[in-house]
Design a protein around this nucleic acid. Structure first.
Length: 581
RNA sequence: GCCGAUGUAGCUCAGUUGGUAGAGCGGCUCAUUCGUAAUGAGUAGGUCGGAGGUUCAAGUCCUCUCAUCGGCUCCA
């Protein structure tokens, strides 16, 4: 199925929905109703507050209209006729759209199905009866034209497909996404919590989640040392004058928390790590021989996020960035970008993400700092690095920050959803503001290039993505508990303890369940908690000095020797294997 | 921040037209010593998100407030 065909179907379904709404709620003013990635929506302005039950009503009405087999009829009108038409019909939003069309457009097209006539350039299906498999999904508020100063309209989201199978499949994926929700799994696996008593967007990491995080961070550090980075630690607060120098108080103010007073000085909790890294740089003079400097930090920052945007671990107010800053000379810049990109992709792959989309954001039209040729050089370096890696990318023209162009990498998870994680950004602003220099081979002062980069983005978000990607069943190397020993009767307690000690000694994270429950119960418990391996220990095993291994995908493994099992697990850890067989 | 929905035990939820809180799971205790997704019995958990108000009486009605969820805007 081509996307274009789906788009036509969905857009036509949006019209169908609008015509149903018009029939049910005649005084409705219509916004727009486009097809979107997985479906469509339509925005309405009406007296009535729509409720979830109304969706069923509207769906039924749509079904009726579809069965009437109306024709989607195209009508042309001149611009003025169109304005007159919609003014008469009391459709101010439509009038606004037409008035905002470029002046060279004098003819506009309409589509009619039955009594419903909508401004639309098409294309559409031929008849309403072609729309068979659709579903209205949810209700939401949305600002007219996406601007929060405009009135808020009521939006209905829905989707449509050409076959029943495709629709069912899509609804199944939605269900699947719900069952993977990291907030639910986070509670079920006791990984983390967010509580009202502390405040929204401030995360408590429980032992299980913290264990996984710890493994992740240790790996992250090792890899950074291996890749030529040094690691820094910097404070959580700093004088407000620092943020004046950096300019954040100007351009980032609305995301920063109010200052606190210490000894008559204002201090601000950090929303970024960069100024601190720059001050480490400025603590001494640098020669061109020192460069490049690559400094990384798991830097915890606090940013004010509006209350309505907080979401589990994905959008929080306190989070840890896997931040790094690279300071280099102009001639090193291109190599550094290539290096970062390679490092980044390797890191993502180690966590099991090998599908991604890459975006390059270039210089904004108007507001930007730095010289034009610097921008061009940097943009070229970014694109070249991606091309050298033989990867595709999309250009977001003018989408860069005012201080420099960037690469953003969005990873695709098991459900093909895209998540923004990695970012590689040039900064032409801070080196200038902090007057950073190095002494070149010519004995003169030069300004270093500065590159910000985060590979995982924020540890919180990345962890949330991992939870959803793996549905809580982390790969063995990351899993907080790798092996659980299940005894059958208490006669095996001693033997179980010996096994536990050997596992622990080998560096395997294990526990014993010797409770007075039946084996079936213990298996179920371990299964629900997605523990990769269960060692079942009964009289038989004890007598023969063996073990019986079951993994979390309900398979018994042919590994009766503990030593061999330990090697097997360590091998999985070593290779970051994604399987448990 | 805005629009809408929700908020009852650790979790999932029930609570009829206002009459003073209930289940399952989980926890704890006891019994059971048992071979690959739930052994049985008993028991303890709640100022029904918070603050006002209406009423003889509020989990149920009204007002305000906070938080969460779905979106919008914004973003790591």
């Amino acid at each position: 199925m081509k996307n274009l065909e789906l788009e036509i179907l969905r857009h036509s379904t949006a019209h169908l929905m609008a015509s149903a709404v018009q029939k049910l709620f005649p005084n409705t003013k219509f916004g727009i109703g486009p097809a979107i990635e997985d479906g469509f929506y339509y925005d309405f302005d009406m007296e009535k507050r729509l409720e979830p039950e109304d969706l069923e009503l509207i769906e039924k009405e749509m079904q009726k209209i579809a069965e009437e087999d109306l024709v989607f009829e195209k009508i042309e009108k001149t611009r003025n006729e169109a304005i007159e038409f919609f003014t008469k019909k009391n459709q101010p939003y439509k009038v606004e759209i037409i008035k905002d069309l470029p002046s060279e457009i004098q003819e506009v097209s309409f589509f009619r199905n039955g009594d419903f006539v909508d401004l639309c350039k098409g294309p559409h299906l031929e008849r309403t009866s072609e729309i068979k498999y659709f579903k209205l999904l949810n209700l939401a508020g949305a600002y007219w034209r996406g601007n929060e100063k405009n009135p808020m309209l009521q939006r209905i989201y829905g989707t449509a497909f050409y076959t029943k199978e495709a629709l069912d499949e899509y609804l199944k994926v939605l269900d699947e996404a719900r069952s993977r929700d990291h907030r639910t799994l986070g509670r079920e696996l006791d990984l983390f919590s967010v509580t009202d008593e502390i405040g929204g967007g401030l995360v408590l990491w429980h032992p299980n989640g913290a264990r996984v995080r710890n493994v992740l961070e240790n790996f992250w550090r090792d890899e950074h040392f291996r890749n030529g980075y040094e690691i820094l630690y910097t404070p959580h607060i700093g004088k407000s004058t620092l943020w004046e120098t950096s300019g954040h108080l100007g351009f980032y103010n609305e995301n920063m928390y109010s200052p606190m007073q210490v000894d008559d000085q204002d201090y601000i909790i950090k929303p970024m790590n960069c100024p601190f890294h720059i001050l480490v740089y400025k603590n001494s003079h640098h020669s061109y021989r020192d460069l490049p400097l690559r400094w990384a930090e798991l830097g915890t920052v606090y940013r004010y996020e509006r209350s309505g945007v907080l979401h589990g671990l994905m959008r929080v107010r306190g989070f840890t960035q896997d931040d790094a800053h690279i300071f280099c000379a102009q001639e090193q810049m291109e190599d550094e970008i290539i290096r970062v990109l390679k490092f980044c992709l390797k890191m993502l792959k180690d966590f099991g993400f090998s599908e991604y989309k890459i975006y390059v954001s270039t210089r904004p039209e108007k507001k930007f700092v730095g010289k034009l040729e610097e921008w061009e050089r940097a943009e070229k370096a970014l694109m070249r690095a991606i091309e050298l890696a033989n990867l595709e990318y999309e250009i977001d023209e003018g989408g860069g920050a005012f201080y420099g162009p960037k690469i953003d990498i969005k990873i695709k998870d098991a459900l093909k959803r895209e998540w923004q994680c990695s970012t590689i950004q040039f900064d032409f602003n801070l080196p200038e503001r902090f007057d950073m220099t190095y002494i070149g081979a010519d004995g003169g002062k030069h300004r270093p290039y500065m590159i910000h980069r985060a590979l995982l983005g924020s540890i919180e978000r990345f962890f949330g993505i991992l939870v959803e990607h793996y549905k809580g069943a982390f790969p063995v190397w990351l899993m907080h508990e790798q092996v659980r020993i299940l005894t059958i009767t208490e006669k095996q307690n001693e033997y179980a303890k010996n096994i536990f000690e050997r596992l622990t000694e080998a560096g395997i994270r294990a526990s014993i369940n010797s409770s007075n429950e039946k084996l079936g119960y213990k298996v179920r418990e371990a299964q629900v908690q997605k523990i990769p391996f269960m060692l079942i220990i009964g009289e038989k095993e004890q007598e023969n000095n063996t073990i019986s291994v079951r993994n979390r995908i309900n398979k018994t493994l042919e590994l009766s020797d503990l030593g061999k099992f330990i090697d097997f697990v360590l091998d999985k850890v070593q290779n970051k294997s994604l399987t448990v067989e």
